[in-house]
Amino acid sequence: MPDPDPDVLVAGESLIDFLPDSAGALADVANFSRRAGGAPANVAVALAHLGATPWFWTRVGEDPFGDHLAETLSSFGVPDRFVERDSSAKTALAFVSHDEEADREFTFYRDGTADTRVEPGGVPDETLDSVEWVSVGGVMLSADPGRSATLDLAERAADRDCTVVFDPNARPELWRDADRDFADLVAEMLDLADVVKATPEDLADAGFEGDSPEALARSVTEAGPAEASSNRTGPHTVLLTLGGTGAFALSTEAAPWGAGAASHSGYDVDPVDTTGAGDAFTAGAIAAFAEQGDGASLSEVIGFANAVAAVTTTAQGAMAALPTREAVREFRD
């Protein structure tokens, strides 16, 4: 196999999702299905499906669940160069429950697990010099050393003019006993990010307000750097996923594709499982932006990303129905 030459680096947690066989409270679910997961892992695999195979920096245990994750990533063509194995920590687990309306809740088993133990510097500067895009998520910010590793990676990527994509991915359970506040760390990340993909709920947890998607998105672009002395300007593009009502995008004049706004109403599908749909959207947006370059159309980007997300919901598991570019084209026709 030839050496890969990715334009994208994704970093963050890999874990096992246990998906319920029925709706209801977690205590009442009798049977679960094991699926590979973790938001960054979902993004990495989705990008590989779309023909934009990335580097993926993650850490899993040297245990059966870690074996499954490593084998799954490899089977989807994700290079293993930055897939670390930890001999003294277990692989993280997440149990998912949902009500009749498919609103999901997550219960994590992630205290001291392998994914929290990535160390700063795991991705060398030379790799960051070779990529255009770096994508990170908020789950890794909940504990050190993974928090420091994520912030270090984002800072070095920003210094090298990579386009840094950040998904806050609020998971309140992970922050109840954290030694830092979620909103403070999101503010710190916004100092380094160029593109923010989020839900209104993520942004509400981070302290942002707005009476419309545009107002909410604009509040993110206007937040400014966390440090008054910073010479950074904060994110120039915000992508809001709005569930069944589609998505909204806003960019400022600082964006390579210029200032603009766009909305997309989404696609009608019969969802089987919405786990990972937001991650599929992130991957679709990165792939579309990377393909279109400085002339990117916000409308086309979120239309493509919505299609990737919609197809992903048609099977159980975040990675089970990820589409290729050709499948996305056929779906949209």
Rank of each mutant, 00 (worst) to 15 (best):
296 A>P: 03
59 R>C: 14
199 T>M: 06
263 S>A: 15
44 A>N: 06
318 A>R: 04
213 P>R: 08
130 S>P: 00
278 G>Q: 10
176 R>Y: 07
298 L>Y: 04
40 P>Y: 05
303 G>C: 01
278 G>K: 08
36 A>H: 03
92 A>W: 02
81 R>K: 09
242 L>T: 11
302 I>N: 00
5 D>A: 11
316 Q>P: 00
168 P>F: 05
162 C>K: 03
22 S>C: 11
56 F>W: 07
310 A>R: 04
145 P>C: 02
224 G>R: 08
193 A>I: 12
262 A>V: 09
190 L>G: 10
88 S>R: 09
162 C>H: 00
226 A>V: 13
127 T>N: 03
3 D>S: 12
226 A>W: 10
156 R>W: 02
187 A>Q: 11
224 G>A: 14
26 L>M: 11
125 D>N: 07
149 A>Q: 03
290 A>Q: 14
315 A>R: 08
122 G>V: 01
120 P>K: 01
254 A>F: 06
165 V>M: 04
154 A>H: 05
276 G>A: 09
188 E>M: 07
89 A>D: 07
64 P>V: 05
14 S>Q: 10
292 Q>M: 14
105 E>V: 04
123 V>W: 01
149 A>G: 04
116 T>P: 02
294 D>W: 03
161 D>W: 01
251 S>G: 13
120 P>R: 00
165 V>S: 12
291 E>P: 07
333 D>Y: 00
127 T>W: 03
194 D>M: 07
326 E>R: 00
24 G>Q: 07
213 P>L: 08
216 L>M: 11
193 A>M: 08
50 L>W: 07
174 L>D: 12
154 A>N: 05
271 P>W: 05
161 D>V: 02
107 T>S: 14
163 T>N: 03
91 T>K: 03
